[in-house]
C-alpha cells in the first residue's frame, strides 16, 4: 500500500490515536458512572430526595435545573445526553476499528495457547463491552425511555426503582450487570491511563492498578447498595 498521507495525518489515524480517543471517552464514561452511582445513593436518604434530584437533573424541578440560568430551562439534560451519547458512540466506534485491525493481524490461531500476564478483565474487555452495550440499552429503556410502561408511577423515578429492585431475580441480574461494568472499568481505567502515557514506571503501573481495582470496587458497592437496600426493605 502506497500511502499519500503525511506522517502527521498517519499519526492522527494511528491505533495509538484511536486508543487515546477510546481512553478519553472511556474515562468520561467512568466519570459519569461515578456521578450516577452517587445520585442513586440519594434513595437511601428518602424517595423524595431521590425524586427531587432526578427532577433537578432534568430541569423539571422548582429549584431550576443544572446550570440554570446560564443555559435555558430544560436544555441541560439534552446537551448532557448528546455529550454522553457521543462519548459512548466514539468509544464503540474506536473499539470496532481497533478490533478489526486486530482481527486482520491474526492469520490463524495457535494450536496451543497459554496466557501469562493477561487478567480476566483484559481478556474479556471486548466481548464484555459488547454485552455491556446490550445491557445498557435495556437499562435505558427500562429507567429512562419507557419507565412508566414497565411499572411504577409516572413522574416518580423512585417508584420505578423500588418496584424493580423489589424482585430478587432483578437484583441478581443487576448485580451481574454491575459485575460486568466493573470488570470493564477495572481494565479500562488502568488501560486508559497507560494509553494516555501516564504509566511510565513500575511504580506508576502499581498505583494505576491499585486505583483501578479501587474504582471498580467503589462502583460495585455504590451501585449495589441501593438495590440491596430496596430488596431488604430498608427503603420503600
Amino acid at each position: 500500500m502506497v500511502t499519500t498521507l503525511t506522517p502527521h495525518q498517519r499519526a492522527f489515524r494511528s491505533t495509538v490515536a484511536l486508543k487515546a480517543l477510546m481512553a478519553l471517552t472511556g474515562l468520561i464514561l467512568i466519570a459519569f458512572l461515578l456521578m450516577h452511582c452517587f445520585g442513586n445513593l440519594k434513595l437511601l436518604i428518602s424517595a423524595e430526595e431521590f425524586n427531587h434530584y432526578a427532577h433537578w437533573l432534568k430541569g423539571e424541578g422548582d429549584a431550576g435545573g443544572m446550570l440554570e440560568p446560564l443555559i435555558p430551562h430544560g436544555w441541560f439534560i439534552w446537551i448532557f445526553r448528546v455529550f454522553m451519547l457521543a462519548a459512548a458512540v466514539l468509544h464503540i466506534l474506536a473499539a470496532v476499528v481497533l478490533w478489526r485491525r486486530a482481527y486482520n493481524a491474526t492469520p490463524s490461531n495457535y494450536e496451543a495457547r497459554k496466557k501469562l500476564a493477561q487478567t480476566y478483565a483484559a481478556r474479556t474487555q471486548r466481548l464484555g463491552g459488547v454485552i455491556l452495550g446490550a445491557l445498557l440499552l435495556w437499562h435505558l429503556l427500562q429507567f429512562t425511555v419507557i419507565p412508566a410502561q414497565m411499572a411504577g408511577q409516572a413522574g416518580e423515578p423512585s417508584s420505578y426503582v423500588i418496584f424493580a429492585f423489589g424482585q430478587w431475580y432483578y437484583v441478581l441480574c443487576y448485580a451481574v450487570f454491575m459485575g460486568l461494568v466493573c470488570l470493564h472499568v477495572r481494565h479500562g481505567f488502568w488501560s486508559a491511563f497507560t494509553t494516555l502515557g501516564v504509566n511510565t514506571s513500575k511504580r506508576a503501573e502499581k498505583v494505576l492498578n491499585v486505583l483501578a481495582y479501587l474504582i471498580a470496587a467503589l462502583l460495585f458497592i455504590g451501585f449495589m447498595a441501593m438495590p440491596l437496600a430496596v430488596l431488604g426493605g430498608i427503603v420503600s
Binding site: 500511502t3 481497533l98 501469562l116 500476564a117 474487555q125
Partner: peptide
C-alpha cells in the same frame, strides 16, 4: 516528534494492530 509519527504510521500500515495493554508482550 517526527520519529514517533513515522514509526507508528509504518507499524499500522504493515498490518500490526493496536495495543490492548494486556501485558503478554512484556511477559514473554
Amino acid at each position: 516528534p517526527l520519529r514517533i509519527k513515522t514509526m507508528i504510521g509504518t507499524h499500522d500500515e504493515l498490518g500490526f494492530a493496536g495495543c490492548q495493554n494486556a501485558g503478554e508482550c512484556a511477559a514473554v
